[in-house]
Design a protein around this nucleic acid. Structure first.
Length: 604
DNA sequence: GCCGTTTTCGGCCCGACTGTTTTCAGTCG
């Protein structure tokens, strides 16, 4: 289940400053260690909450700290203490309290928490009473049957731990949404054979369209739960059943991936769907709102005292709280509640809104299909235009094109365009942003293109300053249309390069350029959080596949999920427009004569 | 650790399942 081959994994570049993700990571680690220490669970939650908040910030902490008009404590969930800690991490790269905890609980000890079935209490007991300090210690203690002698532990727990150690390394990895979707399709097909099922829906992070999925949650309405579970248990890919009760069953697939099944009564389906779709944080806020109104929400419904108020549909549940139905993709407690408070929700972009694909490769560089095959496939998918954007010469591994081969390809595109009806092929290129700065093709060549994607593939370990400067300079070039995969990350495989996105946004805005949301399931770059920022900056986003085969053109749906998670509407996404409209949108800031610009301003 | 028009103290979302227990704690989602 791969999605093309990529360069080997590169390590983190040495960082001169702490970015939001790193600050968030420190808070997550602190939460783990405090939990291990047996700290107040709400204090632990405050740190986890802070990690999430910092990760979701639309500006870098650095930017906020530098702005005298802004204060971190204005953010809900960040008080005096955490604001101070954030500032300390930002300026020193660490925190005294964090260092003290790390001295007490090295990473090998924290690995105990990743064993399924081991939570903070049990892990701490093993650590304190048996002096277990690593997974190896733990395995040994289990084999010597020391673990079963501890109070609260028994033979079964010991066996479960032994089994769990094997999984501790493999199950921490979340899989791509696209791969989870393959399981979903297979499970749907399998469950179709069960006649006792009235309704079935996949919930959890899969339904929210997260870029990675940690497990699957299946929600079923049936009056015969046992039969549904029997059927579920016969899915061929199951390795073991972890738990089975009267309404809930959990299994592990052969790959280690976990699938949970939950059977609920018909009148509770909506409440259960809200509950199991999450996110956890979204649910916590819903519960809080319910409590304020003297109500209680659980997976069975909304209750006033013992009295059932709502629960049949998601709309019913939200309506009780005077909330609109939220598309699952935005249920992350990031902006959806603010949106709801401000009025009707904006309509999120949909797959059917997209008219064209603006990043695709052919056999001329490293694609697997010819120009004709790619165009034919795009047309069959209903696209009205496709930009052919093969690599430039610097990407020698991919047989990148120089001016001569590129112009030859463009002549072929001209001839094909004359022949074809119903789709327009754009003469494009994915031009490399060179290590030393500048682009891999002269302006005279780029000027002849309809569409220019500028991408950074080499020198990814350079300093934040150098990488940011290379990208900003590329955006300054009048012939560049869009910045391709702006951070270069490969999910689960390669960290993003160290780039100051605030500066990239500012440059894109200044020069009237667009930013790509690369829809490849391993990239999804920009990510959802960056999309929220781009939207706030008013920068048009282009959702493109970067397809290297005809099947690759199908990736638009993954890009759409990420865009929706970023709160993007049809208006925010540039390739929902016709090619003519798109051209007008492009570079308007620089190319438009000053007079016209003023007129425009008056109209708005 | 955060938060507050009932509160600056005392709350902080809720339930299923398992194993080790004889009524519940721990884990998980």
């Amino acid at each position: 289940m791969g999605f093309g081959s990529y360069a080997p994994v590169a390590g983190w570049a040495k960082l001169s400053r702490m970015n939001n993700a790193e600050i968030a990571h420190i808070f997550d680690e602190i939460a783990d260690m405090l939990e291990f220490e047996g700290a107040n669970p709400f204090r632990v939650r405050a740190y986890r909450n802070a990690a999430r908040i910092v990760r979701d910030l639309s500006d870098s902490v650095e930017t906020i700290l530098a702005d005298p008009n802004r204060d971190l404590t204005d953010i809900e969930g960040i008080g005096e203490d955490l604001a101070g800690k954030i500032a300390t991490i930002a300026s020193t790269g660490t925190l005294p309290m964090y260092e003290e905890l790390r001295a007490k609980f090295p990473p090998e000890v924290l690995a105990l928490l990743r064993v399924p079935g081991l939570g903070p209490k049990k892990a701490a007991a093993l650590y304190k009473k048996l002096h277990i300090r690593s997974l190896d210690d733990l395995r040994e203690a289990c084999l010597k049957h020391k673990v079963r002698e501890l109070p609260g532990f028994g033979a079964k727990t010991e066996e479960a731990i032994l089994e769990g150690i094997a999984f501790a390394g493999t199950t921490e990895k979340r899989i791509y949404w696209a791969d989870a979707d393959l399981y979903v399709q297979a499970l749907r097909e399998h469950m179709r054979t069960c006649r006792e099922i009235e309704k079935l829906e996949f919930a959890g992070s899969y339904r929210r369209g997260r870029e990675t999925v940690g497990d699957l949650d299946i929600l079923v309405v049936s009056s015969k739960p046992a039969k549904v579970m029997d059927c579920f248990g016969q899915f061929e890919d199951i390795y073991e059943t972890i738990a089975r009760g009267s309404t809930k069953m959990s299994v592990r697939l052969r790959s280690g991936f976990q699938v949970d099944l939950r059977v609920v009564p018909r009148e509770s389906f909506g409440a259960a769907l809200v509950y199991f779709t999450g996110s956890k944080q979204h649910n916590i806020i819903l519960r809080g709102m319910a409590k304020e109104r003297g109500l209680k929400i659980n997976e069975y419904g909304v209750f006033r005292g013992e009295k059932f108020i709502a629960g049949k549909t998601e709309e019913d549940v939200y309506a009780v709280l005077d909330l609109p139905w939220f598309p699952p993709e935005i249920r992350e407690a990031r902006f959806e509640f603010d949106w709801a408070a401000a009025g009707p929700l904006p309509k999120l972009v949909e797959l059917s809104d997209l008219r064209g694909d603006l990043h695709a490769h052919t056999t001329e560089s490293d694609g697997k299909a010819t120009l004709e095959e790619m165009v034919d496939a795009a047309k069959k998918r209903g696209l009205k235009y496709i930009a052919i954007t093969d690599h430039s010469r610097r990407v020698t591994m991919a047989n990148g094109l120089g001016p001569e081969r590129l112009r030859k390809q463009w002549r072929a595109i001209d001839r094909l365009n004359e022949r074809l009806r119903g789709i327009t092929i754009l003469k494009g290129v994915e031009v490399d942003i060179l290590e030393r700065g500048g682009l891999d093709l002269p302006d005279s060549v780029l000027a002849e293109a309809d569409w220019v994607v500028a991408s950074l593939h080499y020198g990814q370990n350079q300093s934040r300053e150098r990488i940011t400067r290379r990208i900003v300079e590329a955006l300054e070039n009048p012939y560049v249309s869009v910045l391709g995969h702006p951070t270069g990350r490969l999910i689960n495989r390669r960290k993003p390069y160290d780039v100051d996105l605030d500066q990239v946004f500012a440059a894109a805005k200044r020069y009237g350029k667009m930013l790509e949301l690369n829809a490849n399931p391993a990239r999804l770059d920009l990510d959802d959080v960056a999309c929220i920022s781009a939207r706030q900056h008013g920068i048009p986003i282009v959702i493109s596949t970067d397809a290297h085969s005809t099947e690759g053109l199908g990736a638009l749906r993954y890009g759409i999920l990420q865009a929706r998670r970023g709160g993007l509407t049809k208006h925010d996404v540039a390739n929902t427009r016709t090619w003519n409209q798109l051209q007008k949108l492009l570079g308007r800031a620089e190319k438009m004569p000053k007079k016209t610009k003023k007129k425009e301003a008056r109209h708005h």
